[in-house]
Design a protein around this nucleic acid. Structure first.
Length: 420
RNA sequence: GUGCCUGUAGCUCAAUGGCAGAGUGCUUCACUGUGGAUGAAGAUGUUGAGGGUUCGACCCCCUCCAGGCACCCCA
């Protein structure tokens, strides 16, 4: 491979095989979204940098966004996430929209990061939000959509789980231990990272935040307590609703779930492979007043985002991505010779007018034609040789079973339709 | 952005300073009205890029690029 111009770092080419997988993924998450009545929307991929100045984690924009000047010299950002766009869209039509809003989206995003497994610079993301409801039921519903998706792609509760926590609960618990308000952000951030850091280093960092040994011990105990949710009315309600929604097998409580983004104010959750092998598959939570930050009236909401990279790695690992190289419904019309090309072209044309997808071969050895069709993963080929043309027939060959038979040309279309 | 590891045929990998190879895949043929198998023949590389050391570099050194692991952050 000489002198092929390289692609941009951290981007991926989607050859037809990969594109078919992406389309499959979109179909699956669309089904989950639509089953709960969510509507699809999208915003622009280019935004002003001001949109992100409002919120969305300082580092995300300052360090990780692609920013460049347009020809007029104004700074433009390739969107690193969708939530600010969503809140702008909601804020600017706040009086016309019917709440609660149930919206979902799928599109490309960019982050200027060091690529590694499960993380690229250009990726696709499923976003889904319910805006305008502050109820626990809304939180439960969003979790149910996530669970429906996981189930829909064939992941079992043994393989993948949604781990849930509540920021209010954690806040109250930290207060109980005597953690001061100004210490909380750093402490919560460390709780979020406890599984990543070695025990002694984690302890060290906690103590560096001004915690006493007793407080450290209390927090460690807190993080072991998988029944902590029982101390929160909201969590209790949430879990009983999840039971009624019949998705509770996909959901577990985990006091270590905090989430990095600071706009979450209530329920927070992440989906992980239970073997701990992959990055978070999806993450989200409840926010109290995002819309107000871009100049609208305060509106609560709950939602999550799922990147395409990690979920595909997980699905690949569990062998859950179907092998659909080509559309097997596409018919393959062979050509016997230069002399009969016209007959083949006419047949293909008739089939297309009847609504079939048809690939037309070129006149070369039949063996090559069949090999080509086989590699494309097609399931049905039609042969039109001199004998068939003379008798008004056509050979239908099943490329999977190697069976073939003659059929009257007039009854071909109805035969092909009947098979479906 | 920080640290470490890796980069050889389309793919998976050999060759540790001395002629760049194997498996698989690919092309052609056996099979001039038929693709899964078998057999035969054949093609394939600026060894990621550029520079340096050396009589000689896939191998050692430097820089860059790309990928991977950890951190950071997060989908």
């Amino acid at each position: 491979m000489k002198n092929v111009i390289k692609s941009v770092k951290g981007t991926r080419d989607f050859y037809p095989d990969e594109m078919a997988k992406r389309q499959w993924l979109i179909r699956k998450l669309a089904e989950a979204s639509q089953a709960y009545g969510y509507q699809m929307y999208d915003g622009p991929c280019l935004e002003t940098i001001d949109l992100y100045a409002a919120k969305s984690g300082e580092e995300l924009v300052k360090e990780q966004a692609f920013v460049f000047n347009d020809r007029g010299g104004d700074p433009i950002t390739l969107r690193p996430e969708l939530t600010p766009t969503l809140t702008r869209m909601v804020a600017s039509r706040q009086n016309q929209l019917t709440f609660p809003l149930r919206w979902w989206s799928f599109g490309p995003f960019w982050r200027y990061e060091r690529p590694q497994k499960g993380r690229t610079r250009e990726f696709f993301q499923w976003n889904i939000d319910q805006i305008g409801s502050d109820s626990v039921q809304a939180d439960a519903e969003i979790l149910a959509v996530a669970a429906a998706f996981l189930k829909n792609v064939g992941l079992s509760p043994d393989q993948v789980k949604l781990f849930v926590n509540d920021r209010r609960l954690m806040d109250a618990q930290l207060s109980k231990i005597g953690i001061r308000a100004e210490q909380k952000p750093a402490v919560l951030h460390l709780i979020d990272r406890i599984d990543k850091l070695p025990e002694d280093i984690w302890d060290e960092k906690m103590l560096a935040e001004g915690l006493s040994e007793a407080q450290l011990k209390a927090i460690r105990a807190l993080l072991e307590n998988c029944d902590l949710w029982r101390e929160s009315d909201q969590m209790q309600t949430l879990f009983s609703l999840l039971e009624l929604l019949e998705v509770s097998e996909y959901v577990s409580y985990d006091p270590k779930i905090i989430r990095g983004l600071d706009y979450y104010t209530g329920t927070v959750f992440e989906a992980h492979a239970t073997n701990g092998e992959f990055r978070a598959i999806l993450g989200g939570g409840h926010y109290a007043n995002l819309v107000a930050d871009v100049g609208g009236m305060p509106l609560p909401g709950v939602g999550f985002a799922m990147g395409d990279v990690v979920i595909m790695l997980v699905l690949e690992a569990y062998g859950l991505i179907p092998e659909e190289l080509a559309d097997p419904e596409t018919l393959f019309v062979t050509v016997f010779s230069e002399e009969t090309l016209g007959d083949s072209l006419r047949l293909a044309s008739q089939l297309r007018q009847a609504g079939f997808k048809v690939i037309q071969a070129e006149p070369e050895k039949l063996a090559k034609q069949f090999k080509y069709a086989d590699r494309l993963g097609l399931s049905k080929a039609l042969v039109l040789g001199p004998d068939e043309i003379a008798n008004g027939k056509v050979v239908v060959k099943d490329l999977r079973t190697f069976e073939q038979f003659n059929i009257e040309r007039e009854s071909l279309i109805s035969h092909l339709r009947r098979k479906d």
